[in-house]
Nucleic acid binder design. Structure first.
Lengths: 242, 242
DNA sequence: CCGTAAATGTCGTCG
DNA sequence: CGACGACGTTTACGG
């Protein structure tokens, strides 16, 4: 059974020091920061700059233990004003210790369950659209199947060209070297299958980096730049099952 | 010259809808969320669950434009209570539109410049430890150099075995397929150097994923599982320079 | 639960 | 500025 957490979000602005130990060891000197405690128990420590990644954090599930500083106790760093110490710990042993020296703001809000994010334009959409329109790769081409399984993972599309020759297609939003390597591994494996071989390769992406293109073409892999909007425009929603 | 931003962090708890368009298109239905506006202009939208990644965000640098809703204006979603609309835009054209329907909390704090984080990573540590103890790879082995340079990047370690044969070592914390590909590219290049060739390969990691092991061994690359604690234990601090 | 691939990845570093 | 590798990657998906 999954633990039920109260639907609450606590936002604390405080002068603090932070120590993380786990996959690495890190220390944050004393400064004013924002500490968010989410309803699921996770903790985020943000400064005023930097993008969305916190300076330190603890992912759920984890436990928070708060110990008030005894009157007159002296903190290890920054003098004599320690208010309380939070110990946030995961099962893995990862630990975050927050020493709070001054609370500037403290509020808790009930946000409720978030209905979540609706996305459009990710790789799976490209794959679905191209699967429905394999003819954009060549006249008379047909789809054998999406997510064609191999021992080392599924190939995005397996097609046949007008002459019946097999073609494996790897689809990326942004085509980089990794994707070419991935397709190369699939091709090597597929070409060992006498029922399929010879198998050609197509590297299809909305954007193909020059080095990826060079590597692909050097290996005889055709590169195709996909136009998502055009694919979406041609796409007939009536033909879709869902 | 770098732009100077005011050292401020605004924290808003509000019922809102959010639309992102940029590298993809995404929509958040109306709900109560925390909106953080950092001193550098970046915007983060957090819900009550999920780990450190916000539901939506905009990285700096970006501009924020706020338009108050005319009295009686009707929002597209959720009825008639639109308060204001924020448009957060990056130079790339990425855009975040936040429709604020109800402000539950709004506060701005001056955090000051954060002194920053002190880190001690694991992989660099592994590399240093193994460099000092290449004998764990085989009796009589010697280190040629760490970060041995090649045209496509530095190899973690270049060694010689007891017979004088060259060995390239790729070190990872977690050994996955990407690491094997990386080492393969290095080996291909190093083996073109008549002064070094033939060059063997070792894939060394704290943990090696099964598929990575299969691929490596299929290519004649030896896999070595590193014991971080043991290496650290054997390590003589007196031999270290720092 | 494990393993792999995707990500609005982000974040350094180096050329 | 682009390319590349590391990341306390996190997150989603499939067996």
């Amino acid at each position: 059974m999954r633990a039920r957490y109260p639907h609450r979000m606590r936002i604390l602005v405080a002068r603090c020091t932070v120590d993380y130990s786990g996959r690495l060891v890190a220390h944050l000197p004393q400064a004013v920061r924002v500490i968010m405690v989410k309803g699921d128990g996770s903790v985020l420590i943000h400064s005023e700059a930097g993008s969305y990644k916190p300076l330190n954090w603890m992912s759920p599930p984890c436990t928070i233990r708060v110990v008030s500083a005894p009157a007159g106790d002296v903190a290890e760093e920054g003098g004599d004003d320690l208010v309380e110490t939070w110990t946030v710990e995961a099962k893995s042993g990862d630990r975050l210790v927050i020493s709070v020296h001054e609370v500037i703001h403290d509020a808790t809000h009930d946000l409720g369950v978030d209905p979540g994010l609706v996305k459009d334009g990710v790789e799976s959409h490209l794959q679905r659209l191209l699967a429905e329109q394999v003819a954009v790769l060549g006249d008379g081409w047909t789809l054998v199947r999406r997510e064609y399984p191999t021992a080392i993972g599924p190939v995005d599309l397996l097609c046949r060209d007008a002459t019946g020759r097999s073609v494996a297609v790897e689809i990326k939003r942004r085509g980089e070297i990794d994707g070419v390597e991935q397709l190369t591994r699939y091709l090597e494996l597929l070409n060992r299958d006498p029922l399929l071989a010879p198998v050609d390769g197509i590297f299809a992406a909305q954007e193909i980096k020059p080095q990826a293109r060079v590597l692909a073409e050097d290996r005889g892999i055709r590169c195709v730049v996909l136009d998502y909007e055009a694919l979406k425009g041609t796409d007939d929603p009536g033909l879709r099952l869902f």
